[in-house]
Design a protein around this nucleic acid. Structure first.
Lengths: 337, 337
DNA sequence: TTGAAAGCGATACCAC
DNA sequence: GTGGTATCGCTTTCAA
């Protein structure tokens, strides 16, 4: 009921609060011994008393005094998206092992909410921020810079050379998808995309086009751009697939999970079968990919590595000035067969 | 760069720190006016100065002094599970509107990690905990009680009458599934489950059995219990489905997403088609359910409502003693056609 | 090795 | 309405 403070422990152990603080903050060295200028016996006694009394450090007080919070903020656009959820889990695990607590939040793609969140995080004295920026977040991210809080971008880029970045090479992933299909014998390979300029999709398309050119299949390049705003994307995709069937398209690249699912629905209606009538490579992760036999090959972001690199970069930025070449990390995607 | 404190604001505005604190903490009344004993002009000036200087409250200091943190902890078993991810998102949204920050963490079904997390949360002075307990968490949850921190259980139950609970009626959901299939004309309705005693599955099975009895189909009750530990569940499920096909089973209930996917894979291999050869009702949420036409009916937990009820219950418990009948909330599942 | 005492930045109490 | 100041629990000099 009553909170046990460092004073209670000190009194009970018959030492000063200073000693208690020393002992409680000492790191255990490799030899298993406490790394602090305190008599081992005293230290042991303090530890025992703290345990007995059920002492819990008051982080607010510690943070206030020391200026450190051992807290990392992660703001993504949508924690309910499987990609980000898995990302959060990875970051949390890594951070946890390093003694950090992580505060997650979703911006919901809203700049005002993002702004409020950033303020809240500053108020929490977070030591760093890992963020998937939403549209309009550039000026807000400047605030982190003002407070000198190391900030690492993931998933999406925004300009600014103070940020760290851990992004994936989407051009390469588009290439990877196309090359796989080419190697598998397809020639007429087409791609779905949005008419919107979403950078990751633009890059994937570019990679696809490069690979097609390299294979001398330049004439077969064809990208179907869906008007993502349309209420009737289903019909649009259906038309694309129907026409593709008539034209004898051999393979498709679906650069997002959403598009893949739309396409599969259409294919089902058109009685087109994966691996028989048409080959394909998808992106992201979905139960649907693993349902068919053989599973549908897909390309995923290396989540674990993004998380690890982002956290390590944050820690490095916290400690020292990191040169630009180390602050911009570009990872390759993973191809899952 | 330099942190702006309340003193800086006070000095710049030519008032005392007390006034600044009053103004900055005042709630805006319905009339848009600040609800505090401060001259409106002074208040406006203070607000303007704070804004100009870019003042951000130091939560650590505020929390230390006031004992309040406006922070809610949410510990679930796995933040990467879509169910929990969506749950977190809902809780975060609701809590955010109420002025709370949420700290999420996953226990990974590990009691020791859960214990560490709980200690960390206590150290953060969280005002409440919403938790999906993992096996072995009972004694750890007692600690929250010791510190008088309102605790609300979701998804799974553990004994203890100090906790709040927002759970779903799984017996009812099993019944719902069976009744739907019966109404749709099936008689030979069977169910997959695990040999393990997972309470939610046990309840769903019970509901199924009740509904079958009520419909006079007692003899058709059949529950296939998979040895969940088996490395070869796929083969096990395949056998069940194959044999079911031979016996002419008309419908299946798959009480978890995992089982549904296993079953669909097997069905594909056996050339059994949903809605044609066999009807079914699944649980949880998956892309797979929406792929087929018509979509596969499934039963989901009412996420938004669980989140809302859990948060409201936490707030109520924080303010006052809540009678047991209000502390135990049982919700109905949602049937999605 | 040990301890006394000075703050960290806010809030809360009390006096004006 | 307004302001002075003790205080929350801890870390951090500095001195012994």
């Amino acid at each position: 009921m009553k909170k046990i403070t460092i004073r209670d422990v000190a009194k009970e152990a018959g030492v000063s609060v200073t000693l208690v603080s020393f002992v409680l903050n000492a790191k255990v060295g490799e030899d298993g011994k406490l790394d602090c200028p305190v008599n081992v016996n005293t230290a042991a006694r303090v530890l025992a008393v703290a345990q007995k009394l059920g002492y819990k450090r008051n982080n607010a007080a510690a943070s206030l005094r020391s200026g450190r919070s051992h807290t990392l903020a992660v703001i993504i656009t949508d924690i309910a998206s499987p990609f980000f959820a898995e990302m959060c889990r990875n970051i949390e695990n890594i951070a946890y092992k390093a003694g950090y607590t992580v505060i997650f939040a979703s911006s919901d793609e809203s700049a005002p909410k993002f702004s409020q969140l950033v303020d809240a995080m500053i108020g929490y004295n977070v030591e760093g921020l890992i963020v998937a920026p939403c549209p309009g977040s550039e000026p807000i991210l400047e605030r982190m810079q003002f407070y000198n809080i190391p900030t690492v971008l993931i998933d999406r880029d925004v300009p600014g050379d103070s940020f760290g970045r851990v992004l994936v090479d989407n051009v390469h992933s588009g290439r990877q998808a196309a090359e796989y299909l080419i190697k598998n014998g397809s020639r007429k390979i087409e791609m779905l995309s949005y008419s919107l300029d979403i950078q990751s999709l633009v890059d994937r398309v570019a990679g696809y086009e490069e690979a097609m050119k390299d294979a001398g299949l330049e004439e077969n390049i064809r990208v179907h751009r869906l008007s993502s705003s349309s209420v009737n994307v289903e019909a649009e995709v259906y038309e694309v697939m129907k026409e593709a069937k008539e034209r004898g398209v051999e393979a498709f690249i679906f650069p997002s999970k959403r598009m893949a699912i739309l396409a599969f629905s259409a294919m089902q209606a058109l009685d087109m079968r994966f691996n028989k009538d048409v080959d394909c490579v998808c992106f992201d992760e979905s139960d649907v990919y693993n349902l068919s036999v053989p599973p549908i090959p897909h390309i995923v972001q290396p989540l674990g590595e993004i998380a690890l690199r982002a956290f390590n970069l944050f820690q490095k930025m916290l400690k020292e000035d990191v040169p630009p070449e180390e602050k911009n990390i570009l990872l390759k995607t993973e191809f899952i067969k």
